[in-house]
């Protein structure tokens, strides 16, 4: 106290009464409450065994969710789209071939000869076109007999 008298005379005059209070029976009940807390802490290690699973559980859930979305939406959509595109390509090819065949078949003999004679016309036939035309309008026998004459 002497050290305080010299450096802080006002402080040394203040009574050292405790200005703080506690609720009634606080210290009587404390032991029992502490025991409950310790029991709860002792029970905790059992839970800790599953702590890793508890930690990765949200991540696992998220991964499962993504997998489900992939299975239900992306994968069928992707597969269906690929098949549809392949089908569309085949159809396009078939349509082009059919169009070409119908064009060749649609030309009658007179029109064909006119087209052959028309040297200045814009439409020109190459050898393949001629072969196609002959194959369409002449049988194998006719072609054979014509080529042997």
């Amino acid at each position: 106290m002497d050290e305080l008298n010299n450096i802080a005379p006002k402080l040394s005059k203040i009574k050292k009464d405790n200005p703080f209070k506690v609720p009634d029976n606080y210290f009587d009940d404390f032991s029992a409450r502490l025991q409950m807390k310790i029991d709860a802490e002792n029970a905790e290690p059992k839970k800790k065994e599953n702590k890793i699973i508890q930690l990765i559980k949200p991540a696992l859930g998220l991964a499962a969710g993504f997998a489900l979305i992939f299975m239900l939406a992306y994968w069928p959509l992707n597969t269906f789209t690929k098949k549809q595109m392949a089908k569309n390509n085949d159809t396009e090819l078939e349509t082009n071939e059919m169009l070409y065949a119908s064009m060749v078949e649609g030309i009658d003999l007179n029109s064909f000869y006119v087209l052959l004679d028309d040297q200045n016309g814009e439409v020109h036939f190459d050898d393949d076109d001629l072969v196609d035309f002959v194959n369409t309008y002449s049988s194998d026998y006719e072609i054979f007999s014509e080529t042997n004459n």
Binding site: L11, I14, D17, P19, F20, K21, V22, P23
Partner: peptide
């Protein structure tokens, strides 16, 4: 805000 403080003015100033 402490409801369990029961000191007088000088004790409050000291705290």
């Amino acid at each position: 805000t402490d409801t369990y403080f029961d000191g007088d003015e000088i004790q409050l100033r000291l705290q």
